[in-house]
């Protein structure tokens, strides 16, 4: 069963200047997809359109076989049940770590605390539950940001350059841990990155965007041969 289905999606901010052209994409439940491409190719825009933060010019988006956006309908972001992780992390600075994670939960307070603590344990940041974001390291902040996005059990987890500001060794470690957690929880995910290593390490499938169009698509190991010169170009 496909969790996300995008049909013939196009987008332009200014008339006659298309950012995305005729994107067709399908993601199965539990699949991790990476979108690769150079800066300005439209990958972040595609992610924002899936989240409902931008409205596409043409095309349609279905999540769990339900149309969330087309020419006639637009379901707002808050009702799409998607999770978002951004490069800047965007943790709420006035809330403690646990309150950040509890923010998207709607159950009783005790259940929310239990859920939040469990997910913080998964990401090994539970000992910072009562700290503020500025009191922990950037790697720990990124773990919290992913934990917060996963806590409400979103249908799709959207990650925009999730490891972009972290150092290499931390990135490698976080990739392994995050992939394991995503797979263990069967979380459908889309990772936007300009780093080919992110894509290869994390995803089941990779698409390459160039000038707003899908240039290549395939399982990660095939894209390994997506050619060295392409990889260089992307980076």
């Amino acid at each position: 069963m496909s969790t996300l289905e995008i049909k013939n999606l196009s987008h332009s901010y200014i008339k006659n200047k298309t950012v995305l052209t005729n994107i067709d994409l399908e993601i199965k439940e539990g699949e991790i997809l990476s979108i690769l491409g150079p800066s300005g190719c439209g990958k972040t825009t595609l992610l924002r359109i899936i989240a409902g933060l931008e409205k596409e010019t043409n095309g349609s988006i279905q999540i769990n076989n339900k149309i969330v956006s087309d020419y006639l309908h637009t379901i707002p972001t808050e009702k799409r049940n998607v999770g978002l992780v951004v490069q800047e992390r965007a943790l709420f600075p006035h809330l403690t770590i646990i309150k950040n994670v509890m923010f998207g939960l709607n159950n009783s307070k005790k259940e929310n605390i239990d859920t939040a603590m469990n997910i913080l344990k998964l990401f090994r940041v539970d000992r910072y539950a009562h700290n503020f974001p500025h009191e922990i390291s950037s790697g720990e902040q990124q773990r919290v940001a992913i934990a917060r996005a996963m806590a409400p059990k979103p249908k799709i987890l959207l990650m925009d350059e999730p490891f972009g500001t972290l150092d290499q060794s931390l990135t490698v470690q976080l990739r392994i841990e995050t992939k394991k957690i995503l797979k263990d929880n069967n979380t459908t995910s889309i990772i936007v990155s300009h780093d080919i290593d992110d894509a290869l390490a994390m995803s089941d499938r990779v698409i390459v965007l160039e000038n707003g169009m899908i240039k290549q698509s395939g399982v990660a190991k095939d894209i390994t041969h997506l050619s060295k010169e392409k990889a260089v170009k992307i980076q």
């Binding site: 972001t77 799409r80 978002l84 800047e88 923010f103």
Partner: peptide, 15 residues
């Protein structure tokens, strides 16, 4: 206030 904070809070059902 970074606009990304708004984006994230919307995905967390806060609007």
């Amino acid at each position: 206030i970074n606009h990304k904070i708004d984006d994230v809070s919307r995905t967390l059902k806060s609007s």
